[in-house]
Structure formats: structure tokens, C-alpha cells
């Protein structure tokens, strides 16, 4: 008998073996499954409850405690366009004030790094703890003045550039009286 035959005979003897398991195994299997399914379901509910709770809390806070809408709060401030020339008087105005403003540093940097045509996006912040509204009004006035000086253009004019294509094309050269060099382009002038 060959080794393969021996293997096949052994395999045939055992392959279709069946033995009925005791009933308590079935109960144990389905009990474990139901417990695990219940745990998964409860976990899902718990997560949903947490999400709903946080959402409700956030909504309640928004409704009952609205954040003050003024320029002293940087998060509420509207970003505005400032050009670096307009920032000069602000610097002058702010000199002497005890509280050094972040926008000053920003304007200084813009003076160094940007040329005259560039604009910076800056967020106005309070520079004085005593009277922030006065500064805000001044800044807004200057912003309006700056905006009025801004010119809106739809496109930038570009000067026409003469094409060199025709210049580079080989001309019909007349070396001697009867000899012509090719390739060439013959232009007929009327």
C-alpha cells in the first residue's frame, strides 16, 4: 500500500465523524452570544446618550450665554484689509500707550517684509484697556478711507509682445546671382 493510499484510507475513516455534543454547550453558546449582543447594544446607547448630552449642553450654553459681540473679543472681530501706508498714523496714535498692541508688531513686520502694493489681513484688537471703543472708531474710519482709495480692476493690461516667429524663419537668401539656398519661405509682395 502506498503512503497516499494509507492517508486516504485514514482520512475516509475520520472525515465524516459526527458526535452529538451535550445540550448545555448549546445553552452556553447562545447565552454568551446574547450577553455580548446586549453589551454591544448598551454601549451603543451609552455613546448615543453621551453625544446627545454634549450637543444639548453646547446648545444650551449658546442660547443662555451668548458671547459679547465687540471688538475687544478677538474671536468676534471681523478681519479687515489694511494697507501698510494706512497703518502709519495708527502707530503714531498708539505711541505712548502702555499696552503694546499685537497689531503694531504686525504692521512693523508688514513694513519690513512687504512692498507698497501688498496688503495684509489683520485682525483689529483692543489696544487700550481704558477706552477700546475710541480706537475702534478711529480704526474703522481709516479703514473706510483706505477702501475709498482702493481701485478695483477687473484685469491687468498686458502690453503686446511682438512674436519672433517670423523673424526666425529662414529667408530666401541670394548668395550669388543664380544660386538660392533652401529651405526657404518665399514672400510675394504686391
Amino acid at each position: 500500500m502506498k503512503q497516499e493510499e494509507f492517508d486516504q484510507l485514514i482520512q475516509a475513516q475520520f472525515a465524516n465523524d459526527v458526535v452529538n455534543p451535550p445540550a448545555h454547550v448549546e445553552e452556553a453558546v447562545f447565552h454568551t452570544l446574547s450577553v455580548s449582543t446586549r453589551k454591544t447594544k448598551y454601549f451603543g446607547w451609552f455613546i448615543s446618550l453621551v453625544v446627545v448630552g454634549f450637543t444639548s449642553l453646547a446648545a444650551w450654553q449658546l442660547v443662555n450665554h451668548p458671547e459679547p459681540d465687540d471688538a475687544t473679543n478677538p474671536s468676534n472681530a471681523v478681519p479687515v484689509l489694511l494697507d501698510n501706508t494706512a497703518s502709519v498714523p495708527i502707530e503714531g496714535e498708539l505711541k505712548g500707550q502702555s499696552n503694546e498692541d499685537a497689531s503694531l508688531g504686525l504692521n512693523e513686520r508688514s513694513n519690513e517684509a512687504m512692498d507698497e502694493t501688498e496688503f495684509i489681513l489683520a485682525v483689529p484688537q483692543s489696544t487700550s484697556k481704558e477706552d477700546p471703543s475710541a480706537l475702534t472708531e478711529g480704526v474703522q474710519g481709516r479703514i473706510l478711507a483706505t477702501e475709498s482709495t482702493l481701485e478695483t480692476i477687473s484685469s491687468r493690461p498686458v502690453e503686446a509682445i511682438e512674436s519672433n516667429e517670423l523673424k526666425n524663419e529662414p529667408e530666401l537668401e541670394k548668395e550669388h546671382e543664380e544660386t538660392w539656398t533652401l529651405p526657404a519661405k518665399v514672400k510675394v509682395k504686391h
Binding site: 465524516n16 465523524d17 459526527v18 458526535v19 452529538n20 455534543p21 454547550v25 448549546e26
Partner: peptide, 9 residues
């Protein structure tokens, strides 16, 4: 189950 129990045994 009977098949699986035979294998397990």
C-alpha cells in the same frame, strides 16, 4: 455541531 464536536474531540 456534531461534526464540530467530533473534530474538537
Amino acid at each position: 455541531s456534531p461534526l464540530m464536536f467530533a473534530v474538537a474531540l
